[in-house]
Design a protein around this nucleic acid. Structure first.
Lengths: 159, 159
DNA sequence: CAAACAGTTTAGCCTTGGCTAACAATTATC
DNA sequence: GATAATTGTTAGCCAAGGCTAAACTGTTTG
């Protein structure tokens, strides 16, 4: 690897803030985030489809497009992918269903989402802000943090 | 808009969890997340470049590649983009500098990052997990939530 | 000082996830 | 039941962010 950085340990200057983590750890942080990004959208679609089915009895492409603020063509393409991934089943021009696996993913996602959302509210964040933040944060919260959030929320409720 | 959904208010089934938010709000959540994604990577690069400069006196493409766990070619391409965006200045085969604007972005990102990281630690999350989560979460935390996190962390420190 | 090595860039490829426009199917309405 | 409106699909475009391989530059060292 012959790390160029080694030659610059030198003179400690502007030491505000934490030190840099070791290279391997730092690299792993970024990799984790990149991996999360890959599954994120998939999970969002599956979660939304699950929510639509649960709340309205069915999930149609047009509803997804409206709620995601995305074109119908994009949704159509995405559904093909979800199909290939074995997460949904669909017949052309018909509404969607989640496979076993899709349902599992939808539930997990939804559970995560709820924990984060309720945690933010318990922290004192305004509802509409909490919703937006939760949507973005949910895919980046580890199981460990998630369970701490859950405990915190419960304590808040039963003081 | 002629919302198809309207025709399915019907029979409330499986009412676990919160109701769906109104379409406009829901759409805005997803849009916010999509927008965050666009700037996220840019901010990560700029933040890392700032950190490298601060801690080692200079930022070189190879160091960035190592720390991001990404190929040098990818970094090179990204640097060109950062250049076009007026965030860094660079001469071929030389190390990088942040422009005024780049510095501002680096500082803001770093501040956000620190608030989230310290908050997670204050919550009781293990250090290495907190680092990973903070890296993913920082771009999805609103100003409102951020300041609540900061207050929480301070209270934790001065009980 | 020439050769070897480390670092950087370029070229060219791939996948994702957006978009619009044109077309096809289904559903609603007269 | 024919036609209009809505919904869904396909084709083809684009930018972003990865990658590898090859070329080039700068630095170190025998």
């Amino acid at each position: 690897m012959s790390d160029h950085e080694q030659r610059h340990l030198s003179s400690l200057r502007g030491q505000s803030g934490d030190a840099l983590p070791p290279v391997e750890q730092h690299a792993q942080q970024y990799e984790t985030v990149r991996n999360a990004h890959e599954t994120e959208l998939i999970e969002d679609y599956v979660e939304l489809i699950g929510d639509l089915i649960r709340h309205r009895g069915e999930a149609r492409a047009a509803d997804i497009a409206n709620r995601m603020a995305v074109s119908q063509a994009t949704v159509s393409k995405m559904i093909r992918r979800l199909n290939e991934l074995g997460l949904v089943t669909s017949k052309p021009y018909r509404s969607l269903f989640l496979t076993e696996e899709g349902q599992k993913m939808a539930e997990t996602s939804r559970a995560r989402h709820d924990v984060v959302l309720h945690f933010l509210r318990a922290l004192g964040v305004d509802d509409s802000t909490a919703r937006i933040d939760a949507e973005g944060m949910e895919h980046h919260v580890s199981d460990e943090t998630l369970s701490i959030m859950q405990r915190f929320t419960e304590q808040q409720r039963n003081p």
